[in-house]
Amino acid sequence: MSSQAVLEFARGPFFYFALLFMLFGLAYRLFNVISLGWNKDRVVPMGSKSKGVVITFLKAFLIWPFIPWVKDTFNRNPLIYIGGGLFHLSLFVVIILGTPHMLVWKSLIGLGWPTLPLPVVDWMSAVGIIAMVILLINRRIHPVLKLISGPAEFVAWLFVFLPMITGYMMTHHIGGSYEALYARHMISVDVLMIWIPLSRISHFVFYFFSRAIHGQEFGKRGVAV
């Protein structure tokens, strides 16, 4: 099977299946959790629930990332905080503001937007890759992390790492012909999309719901967090 044929499969039917499987799986898990229902609230709220939700999101995205040192989560684990932060920023820059990725979004949702120059995206992807490696080493040597890390954590790490490293190799033409590199990148992306609903990588959907629920709890109790 030629690289071209593998590439066509990875960009064609495999991508199609992976995307639908991911959407199906995420919908299943999300509605499954939401439908569990929660206990009746008999207490009179001390503040606005929706205000709490808005505040918690604003703080999470616009305040804490810029003054992280005021938080315990940063002071106790600066490496994880910085590494994790840079990794997520890198993901955002590469997946949303990288030209080839924007064209994928455009073909899927019919909407395009301006992108960053290749060197900027390239450096950010390198930052993401380095952050992932450092976080893996930390996970392997940190006494507490070592105890709570099982195969699932390492499999998830690998499935996220592969699209990043293959994408980087593809941009720099390392390790084969362009279509072979492209095929590897697409296969790793397809595998990741299938793995997302089966693992905790689905947090990128759950995060917003759990944050909203916490926010309304804070709002209800009148706590400014």
């Binding site: 959407l23 299943y28 898990r29 939401i34 439908s35 569990l36 229902g37």
Partner: peptide
Amino acid sequence: AVGVGAALGIGTALVNQ
């Protein structure tokens, strides 16, 4: 895909409840 996923999700949750 989303519809079937959601229906299955809600369905299993209700059965569990």
